[in-house]
Design a protein around this nucleic acid. Structure first.
Length: 575
DNA sequence: GCCGTTTTCGGCCCGACTGTTTTCAGTCG
């Protein structure tokens, strides 16, 4: 049987929830499945390993006796009887219809039971024959909307990489801030939580009721179409395909609204539950004791009302941050200003665009105290990887820069290929002359998990190995991570005293937040690097910091927050 | 189906917008 991962189990629970919804099942039971699916997706360790080690699954929040039994059933048999039964009762394709905007369980059930519609094709056909408008609760407008949405379904909605929408967000924010009467404008939602991708943009502004901000928003030049428009809430889709929701609130509610619209949903539900235990009602307008508003102007006031310190947005995923806040052990998260250097940089010696001098000057301008030049190695021909003579030439040039430039130190490094047999792609005597050796994988992604893991572990055993670059090789929305047992990699790093990278490139963000947190718990330092191939890309560091903060990393957990002397000492210990 | 420092039963976050209604259900975030 194929190995079953957390994503498979989460998908099974979501499928159960979908079918139960269509059947009109108990909404709280459905929510329990959805909560569990979300929790399992965000879980670091694989459930199959936890079960193998006899861990008590009911200790995971949202997993009780029943769901724990179903998890084990899925791991052992590949499915759950409860799911199989549902699959026998309903065609699988009905779930596609549930995904259409505007169609929830009630309407899907009506379509299914009254018109026997079970596929998108049948839905489109029925809409064209004007049969849908006949159903109670449906009408002309709804039928039109359904037809449009169903036809567009083929164009699947992918999430946007956070780095890709930066400039778009800046333009829109400036535009809204210029509307008369508008005070603060804050982009909330998953963007504020620094998630690697955002599905849509949630913008919050403070403005009086008679403000023109909603009209101005709907008239913004990048708007493609308007989904809804009201006095306090509007939604549009930009030409880029990005959906933007704007919320307007009065200044005295701004903190409450910001807390609410930053999410995550799971975090907010947990906070509201604590509120209700204290007899408080929490909504986007404030915290209410009966009808009296007791908090709302600032975010901190909301948390104070439930006896908690303000929790940084990046932690708000209901992954233990509320318990940590309650017990006074919230981490003091790493900040961009803590970063002293960048240990993964390319130049035009290989596949970078800018020269060594340009990269050094740009790094110095950003206030970095040190950088490491880490070109590709010989075997990576596609990136003009350096052979020993070319590397020596670059090392000499770096020596000249170090003699000339004050205020920044340039370290000599290499991003060396870990070959399929675990050997490094340059002779030991060459590697031994460098300040640091960054191991990496750029080919043979298809190896089995066992072989890929062995390959990497063997590479890490090399005496000159400093850290593993982009440890999973994933490209967000583009390429799955290669199969590798990261827990073994993390433990090897601890055992060897070497490090792992959080590659801050917006396509990578690798390690991700979950494994950053595991690395921290295992006592392995993380190096946050830009992997810049041109001067502007040095700014990607900020996205790496966002991801690191989501992974609970503090200054002390990050290798390149160290002053140069300490950094060199730590690196030397690996060699 | 989960959960409990009042509870092992009876709760389970909460409000805006839309479209179809004639006071509200469904959907969404």
């Amino acid at each position: 049987m194929k190995p079953i991962y957390n994503t498979d189990i989460a998908a099974a629970f979501d499928e159960i929830a979908d079918f139960l919804e269509i059947e009109g099942g108990n909404p709280f039971r459905i929510r329990a499945y959805r909560n569990a699916a979300r929790t399992i997706r965000g879980l670091g360790p694989e459930l199959k390993n936890m079960v193998a080690q006899n861990n008590d699954l009911t200790r995971i929040p949202g997993i009780g006796k029943e769901l724990a039994a179903k998890i084990i059933e899925i791991l052992e048999t590949g499915s759950a009887r409860a799911l199989t039964k549902l699959q026998h009762r309903h065609p699988k394709t009905i779930r596609d219809i549930l995904k259409l905007p505007g169609l929830g369980p009630k309407r899907v059930r009506a379509l299914y039971q009254d018109l026997k519609i079970t596929t998108l094709e049948e839905l489109i056909a029925a809409a064209r024959k004007a049969r849908i408008r006949m159903l109670p609760g449906f009408g002309d407008a709804m039928e039109r909307q359904i037809l449009e949405a169903a036809e567009k379904m083929a164009v699947s909605k992918t999430r946007f990489k956070i780095g890709d929408i930066q400039s778009c967000v800046g333009r829109l924010k400036n535009y809204l801030e210029a509307v008369p009467g508008v005070g603060q404008v804050v982009v909330a939602g998953s963007y504020r939580r620094a998630k690697e991708t955002v599905g849509d943009l949630d913008i919050l502004c403070s403005a009086p009721q008679d403000s023109a901000v909603m009209d101005q928003f709907a008239g913004y030049q990048e708007v493609d179409r308007i989904l809804s428009k009201g006095a306090t809430r509007s939604s549009v889709v930009l030409h880029s395909g990005l959906q933007v929701d704007l919320r307007r609130v009065e200044p005295e509610s701004f903190g409450a609204a910001l807390q609410y619209f930053t999410g995550s949903q799971a975090h907010n539900i947990a906070i509201r539950r604590i509120g209700s235990q204290k007899g408080l009602k929490i909504n986007e307008y404030g915290v209410f004791n009966l009808d009296e508003c007791v908090a709302g102007k600032t975010e901190a006031s909301i948390y104070r009302a439930v006896d908690l310190p303000c929790i940084p947005p990046e932690l708000r995923e209901n992954r233990g941050e509320i318990e940590a806040a309650h017990e006074g052990r919230l981490p003091k998260l790493v900040e961009l200003s803590d970063i002293k250097g960048d240990l993964h940089i390319h130049t035009d010696y290989t596949d970078g665009r800018d020269s060594l001098e340009e990269m050094i000057l740009a790094a110095k301008k950003r206030g970095l105290k040190y950088i490491a030049i880490t070109e590709h190695s010989d075997r990576l021909k596609i990136a003009k990887g350096l052979d020993p003579p070319k590397l020596r030439k670059q090392m000499e040039e770096i020596d000249r820069f170090n003699a000339e430039f004050k205020g920044i130190t340039v370290l000599k490094g290499i991003e060396v290929e870990i070959l399929p047999d675990g050997q490094l792609d340059l002779p030991d005597e060459v590697l031994g002359k460098l300040d640091l050796v960054v191991g990496t994988i750029h080919n043979q992604f298809g190896l089995s998990k066992e072989k890929q893991t062995e390959r990497i572990l063997r590479g890490m055993d090399h005496p000159h190995f400093t850290f593993l670059a982009h440890p999973t090789g994933r490209l967000i929305n583009e390429r799955e991570p290669y199969k590798v047992d990261l827990m073994r990699v993390i433990r090897k790093a601890r055992e060897r005293g070497c490090f792992l990278e959080l590659n801050a490139n917006i396509r990578r963000l690798d390690l991700d937040d979950i494994y950053c947190r595991i690395a921290k718990e295992e006592g392995v330092l993380v190096a946050i690097n830009s992997d810049a191939h041109r001067v502007e890309a040095l700014a990607h560091m900020g996205f790496g910091i966002g991801q690191a903060r989501r992974g609970w990393l503090e200054k002390a957990d990050v290798l390149n927050t160290r002053p140069l002397a300490e950094l060199l000492r730590l690196i030397k210990q690996t060699m």
